[in-house]
């Protein structure tokens, strides 16, 4: 299935969850926040939160700024 991740389309496996997606991307969940179709996904639900075709996902973290 196809999702939009941080503005780019990405092919991912059916039955994927937020936790699996982060794992595939090599991103540690500790220092990121995830938004699914405009809503924040609480960290404790990453394992259970399924991803569907056409979902829009944003993964953000902290960078240098003033």
């Amino acid at each position: 299935m196809q999702i939009m991740l941080n503005g780019d389309s990405l092919e991912t496996t059916d039955g994927c969850t937020i936790a699996l997606l982060l794992q595939q991307l090599g991103i540690s969940k500790e220092r990121v926040a995830v938004e699914l179709n405009g809503d924040i996904v609480p960290k404790i639900t990453y394992e259970k939160q399924p991803i569907s075709d056409d979902d829009k996902i944003e993964i953000v973290h902290f960078v240098g700024g003033g």
Binding site: L25, V60, F62
Partner: peptide, 30 residues
Amino acid sequence: TVAVRRVNLDRSKESLLDYIDLKKYTLLPN
């Protein structure tokens, strides 16, 4: 202060927080 931005999906990139002792500083996201 720190900014909130999309993660770079290029895994080789290091992150600012790898260099900062979070026990020492209070982060103020902007």
